[in-house]
């Protein structure tokens, strides 16, 4: 009896809910145009113009994608079966989660076209970077792209930046320096090759030969004309000013203490042990 009540309630609930939710509406349509419109109503196809913004597109990029797709003929070459779907399918798609499907963009980016199984990370490089590499192969050959282009006109550069700054005609161009773009071409280069390949091919070849010859020696030979000064050496401790009013002392102890500087009443020097005399610590009245 319980299951009978349950099934009866189920049927009644389903029937009542169906009649409450599903409504029917009738509409009279004219025989001519209305019937034609009702029976063969074309599927609304989006009209896209390459030069005009697209309604519903997300920003300029979305409009550009749709415009590119329209220009490439993607929308025009859509499969015929898609445009011939019944109205029910279209309505189901529109009512489903996410709305109706939109055509894919023809121009896929590098990340989208990259095959995960290919394990070719170079495929992620954009075409623009490849074009740049073709246009400027010399700059591409150096490890530091931007720095090499900027360092090109440097006359002389040494590994020691401080020493290089002391040379008068040199424009101080460190790898992080983006300035110095109007100086003479490279005349000399350091053995580490920072400036190699920047100048003209003849100059570069000469530089390479010179560098190969100098490989046997120390790189310090490259800076014989530079006289390192203490002001140029950033590592030097120049915070203490040099005293100039000290009278020269003729005598000094082996430990470096200057004898006689502190006067006769000076404290015992370092390392010496002194002991008070027993009589000095006893008052005179208490002395025996």
């Amino acid at each position: 009896m319980k299951w009978l009540l349950l099934m009866l309630a189920f049927v009644l609930g389903a029937a009542i809910t169906w009649f409450l939710t599903v409504k029917h509406a009738s509409r009279t349509v004219q025989e001519g145009a209305g019937a034609a419109a009702e029976l063969s109503a074309p599927e609304p196809t989006p009209v896209v113009s390459p030069s005009e913004p697209v309604a519903g597109a997300a920003g300029v990029a979305g409009g550009a994608d749709l415009a590119a797709a329209a220009g490439a003929g993607v929308l025009a070459t859509e499969p015929a079966g898609t445009s011939q779907r019944s109205h029910d399918e279209v309505d189901v798609d529109a009512a489903g989660f996410g709305g109706p499907h939109t055509p894919l963009s023809e121009s896929r980016s590098a990340a989208e076209s990259w095959d995960r199984n290919a394990e070719d990370e170079d495929a992620l490089l954009s075409r623009a970077s490849e074009d740049d590499a073709d246009d400027a192969p010399v700059a591409e050959a150096t490890p530091n792209d931007g720095a090499a282009a900027a360092v090109a006109p440097v006359v002389d550069a040494t590994p020691n930046d401080g020493a290089a700054s002391a040379v008068a005609p040199v424009v101080d161009a460190t790898p992080n320096d983006g300035a110095a773009s109007a100086v003479a071409p490279v005349v000399d280069a350091t053995p580490n090759g920072d400036l190699a390949g920047v100048g003209e091919p003849e100059a570069v070849a000469a530089l390479e030969e010179e560098v190969e010859e100098d490989d046997a020696g120390s790189w310090a030979d490259e800076v014989p004309d530079v006289e390192p000064s203490q002001e140029d050496d950033l590592d030097a401790d120049v915070s203490v000013a040099r005293a100039t009013n000290i009278v020269p002392v003729a005598d000094a102890t082996p430990s470096g203490d200057v004898a006689g500087v502190a006067g006769p009443g000076a404290l015992p020097t370092q390392g010496e042990l002194t002991f008070d005399e027993p009589d000095d610590s006893v008052p005179p009245e208490e002395k025996p």
């Binding site: 409450l20 509406a25 009738s26 509409r27 009279t28 349509v29 004219q30």
Partner: peptide, 16 residues
Amino acid sequence: GKTVTRSYRTGVGGAW
């Protein structure tokens, strides 16, 4: 002419 009858859904409301 032609009378077209279509169905559509509504909420159950208080009748349910």
